[in-house]
Design a protein around this nucleic acid. Structure first.
Lengths: 409, 409
DNA sequence: TTGTCGGCCGTCGGCCGACAA
DNA sequence: TTGTCGGCCGACGGCCGACAA
């Protein structure tokens, strides 16, 4: 694989180093498809809220190491930081194809926080591809013995139609992965009963991407009549990769110190958001935050629903009940809205769902008129003064209120 | 590969996750052989000097990203930190076998720095294995077409002797890698002219370790009559791995903030030293530091020599001349001894050698009596007062002086 | 002394329909 | 509808000495 050309012949697994930092912006459709249906990125140029606590959670998940004391306090680092979002770029790990986003944030001073909203700030829906399928690989799919069995409806909907006058009907498919590398497959309709299969070319793809049974592939047929090809590795017990560069303690300190320094100097800082490592977004649109914190009444005992991703890359609602409203980490992050809602889940299979969620993740089940509540529910917290400036903003929003206050995901 | 047993059958490439953090201490001989002949680790329990500047250099090398501004100042973090070394453990990356060391350091207060030396503090020579060989793999060695051609003298010295009454002489070799995984090879003496070859078993090893031409393997025959097997990947352009977890800026801030916090509170912190990523040690025995800084006269124009590792894992001296004594980074790290000596190298092939080195890395070419110099050369720097406590220590050392002041490597 | 090649052989990668879940 | 298997065929993995650097 040549090191300079962006598009290259996919067949031999590329051992070449990536062409520096100047990777062009990846295909956004494919990135979002790999990231999953619930992931959405805030819009460049808007204001967002950054939660160092959530960022810390992601680093802990990535390093497989909880933070264990010896972390200095950053008294000037609030649990949430209102920032200008200067840049968002989508990336994929060169080794694993794992998707992640890089964001450049700049904390705003109270004056800037007070600025009026622009309509664009509301965030845009993440555009999930319309014509695609996602399949979890079986043992047969990944075995060296055979090819890939394409679910029938998926093949008919997503692949170009076969010429059924041929016997057997077959064609060559060319798909591009997230690095814009081409992969070729023989697509054939054969067997008894008849089925769609990918044969020649499939095994080199499997070995190049190091796919095993349980991983997923997804094919997208986009508006430009291109076939895109993404992978999602099953969430294996983390590879413990960060070792040998920096201790996980130093990483935690690093993210906190970087945010604290940026907050103190109102300067830019950079973070990575890895949607598969920890599904909980820790940079959210300011509008979404305001709506959840100031315009939503919640109380203990209230029922709610929340979206989760299913195995087959679609979305499901789970129901639950609010059991408590309190600080997730009263020592380190008092008065934080991050995971401030303790919940119980209806289904007994709830083991995988988090015991604590944030306000903006849930959908309370009340028919509740869309007018601004002058005071939010949680009056016990004393830090409203710090956000007082937002109140003025709020009243501006409320004018457009119900019609334009869509938020992401 | 079972996830719990330390020793396991090496043949199938192990996809299993590592058994948490409780990895036993690796084979020290093999670790040092893989790390190279110049690498030495300070002794646990002794005092060391830690250079955040050097640490930062290693992180920059590992992330392929120089520090680019926006790094806060840590005015209370001196360029060198005298620490108690509480723990050193040797590790090898589960994916790549890359060796690295983890050290737990605790900054000492001036009182503790003043304590008398223990004889054990002098550091111990790194024990390079005596009976071993290291070969850089050729295209034929890594091709699927054949096996591994063993250099004749290496085979005769390191492998168990063959039974030459057989025709052809052959045996099974069992070698253990740094994770204590067994690998089996057929060792045969055949061909015209006769030569030593590893055939059966070799190719699975090559593919499991992802070896390519230019990488090196090393075999050790130790005192317990065990065959050990290490690899060294050629220094490829870094894999840019840290992406997707933490920005390189945050990593830099993290290491500085962690050190600053530890220094302020005299608490422990943890660092990783990766000898292949950046060969320059940034944690050195205090005795070595004192000898170099206070007992060695250097001046501009002085000739010196310095050790470097050769391709075949041995050691060579290169000659050079001191051209300047100054701060390597006068803005960020004024008055630092790290790379304070600017040098010119004799040979025209000097492109790979660093333009700046530290005092303790070089060997000035003067016949110079071994008595303590009351004042070191560099009088322009004003920070001696800060190290004044060391002077008292120094006079204690000087008593034992020439006989016991051996230092590492 | 040792790196690479052509030759030869056997294993397994990979395409096929059968069959059953 | 689709996951796994046995059967079959050919490509290439892998062991050999020849030859030359």
């Amino acid at each position: 694989m040549s090191s300079s050309s962006a598009a290259s012949i996919g067949q031999p697994p590329p051992p070449a180093p990536p062409p520096e930092e100047e990777k062009k912006c990846l295909n956004s459709e494919l990135w979002h498809a790999c990231a999953g249906p619930l992931v959405c990125l805030p819009t460049v140029g808007t204001r967002v809220v950054y939660f160092p606590q959530g960022h810390s959670e992601q680093v802990a998940a990535s390093t497989n190491k909880e933070v264990d004391g010896h972390i200095p306090n950053y008294p000037n680092l609030p649990p949430q930081l209102i920032c200008q979002l200067h840049d968002v770029t989508m990336h994929a790990d060169v080794e694993t194809d794992e998707v992640y986003a890089q964001m450049t944030l700049q904390p705003l001073n109270p004056q800037e926080q007070n600025d009026a909203y622009l309509p664009a700030e509301m965030g845009i829906m993440s555009k999930q591809p319309t014509n695609y399928f996602c399949k979890t690989l079986t043992a047969s799919d990944t075995s060296t013995h055979g090819g890939f069995s394409v679910p029938r409806r998926a093949a008919e909907r997503v692949f170009p139609p076969l010429d059924f006058t041929q016997q057997p009907p077959a064609q060559e498919l060319i798909a591009r992965d997230i690095h814009d590398v081409e992969w070729k497959f023989r697509h054939i309709f054969r067997g008894q009963p008849k089925r769609h299969l990918l044969t020649t070319g499939w095994s080199v793809f499997v070995s190049a991407k190091r796919l095993v049974a349980g991983d997923s592939v997804l094919f997208i047929w986009n508006e430009k009549n291109q076939l895109l090809l993404g992978i999602r590795h099953a969430t294996r017990p983390q590879t413990v990769m960060p070792s040998s560069v920096l201790s996980s303690d130093s990483m935690h300190i690093g993210l906190l110190a970087a945010a604290a320094h940026a907050a103190a100097t109102n300067s830019r800082f950079t973070i990575f958001y890895n949607p598969r490592a920890s599904p909980t977004e820790f940079v959210i649109p300011l509008s979404k935050y305001i709506k959840a914190v100031f315009h939503t009444r919640i109380s203990v005992g209230m029922r709610f629903r929340m979206l989760f991703e299913t195995e087959e890359s679609s979305v499901r609602r789970y129901m639950g009940t609010i059991t408590e409203v309190s600080d997730a980490d009263p020592v380190r992050w008092p008065s934080s809205y991050w995971r401030s809602v303790k919940v119980g889940w209806d289904e007994s299979t709830a083991g995988e769902r988090p015991p604590r969620v944030s306000l903006w993740e849930i959908e309370p089940l009340t028919t509740f008129p869309m007018y601004p509540s002058l005071f939010p529910l949680r009056v016990k917290h004393p830090w409203y003064s710090g956000l007082a400036c937002l109140y003025h903003v709020e009243s501006k929003i409320s004018v457009v209120g119900a019609i334009s206050l869509h938020y992401c995901c």
